[in-house]
Computed example of a mutant assay.
Amino acid sequence: MGNARDACGPAARLASARGMSDHQPYGTYAPAGLVAAIARRTLRFSPDSWRGRRMAMFLRRLAITLMRGKPLDVERLGARMRLHPYNNNCEKKVLFTPQFFDPQERALLKARLEPGCTFLDIGANIGAYALFVAAFAGPRARILAVEPQPDIFDRLTYNIAQNPFHTVKAVACAVADKAGELTLFVDPRNRGESSLKIVGTNESAQIKVPAVTLMDLVRTEGLTRIDAIKLDVEGAEDLILEPFLREAPPALLPKLLVIEDGVDQWQIDLPKLLEGHGYRETGRTRLNRMFERVAANPA
């Protein structure tokens, strides 16, 4: 497929016009000095140690201060990335403590996904999940990384281009329950919490983005099977999955779902809906729930 970027309409122009990433060659911002020493040290802390986590957070804050607004070019989760750890918790975690970044979820994906799999990363942010899967899924894999925020999308495409996987396609749009132009509420403190719903975000920070339904995305990309979906859309997971589950043929239903736990924002009982389509919950973390499809027609 090749490293690619695509759009669900006019967002392609927005992505380039508003892109904020520095496109200097990879390696321009290699870690050096005390920042490099801190980055090496934080990688060694255990996610199971309370003291280790506290120390890692302290050292991370120190390093971010020393970085003075610049990014770092590093290899994390099996992929090269340029990371900007300032207004995005995802980038902070992946840069300094990737071992803290959804370890249970990533272990499940690695255990279940086979070479040549099809994986959808919806709410891809800067591509941590998509690139993690690409690093082990082989050259026949097909991976879609969907991200609506133009400047974050720019970072995503930069990260994809630094790697030799040639299996990740970036798509610049939102996924929702209806197609069209929708309002995205942008959280300036943590870009990973931007949402099509008002969920603790700054209501004054709004941008218009194109949106498609999950079914339309699948049809447009010509997918005939989906092995796994990671869905992180800040409380709109139910709005996306309900129409897809209703419309999709059984052969298109993904075997594995990693869903951000938005139970306080969901308008329907999403776990019950998934159970009705043959899924059972096989894991839960502080942030996410994991569901695996075990039967086409549940008892």
Rank of each mutant, 00 (worst) to 15 (best):
T97F: 10
R189M: 11
F58Q: 14
A111H: 14
T118A: 05
A248Q: 07
A299C: 09
M57H: 13
E234M: 07
V171D: 07
N3C: 03
G222S: 06
P10R: 13
A248L: 11
T201C: 13
A161E: 13
P71Q: 08
V175S: 01
K178L: 03
G127H: 09
G278C: 01
K93W: 06
A137Q: 05
R106E: 02
R54I: 07
A56C: 11
P98A: 01
P25S: 08
R82S: 10
C117Y: 02
N190F: 08
E203V: 15
P250T: 10
R112N: 05
W266G: 02
L34K: 14
L59R: 09
D102E: 15
R191P: 00
N89R: 12
G200C: 08
D261C: 03
E281L: 09
C90S: 12
P271F: 06
A176G: 10
C117H: 07
L252S: 10
F153S: 06
R106T: 07
R5D: 04
L257P: 09
L231D: 06
D6K: 12
V175C: 02
G222D: 04
I160Q: 06
F153I: 01
F185N: 14
R142K: 13
K230W: 00
G222R: 08
P103I: 04
P254W: 10
P150C: 12
A39W: 14
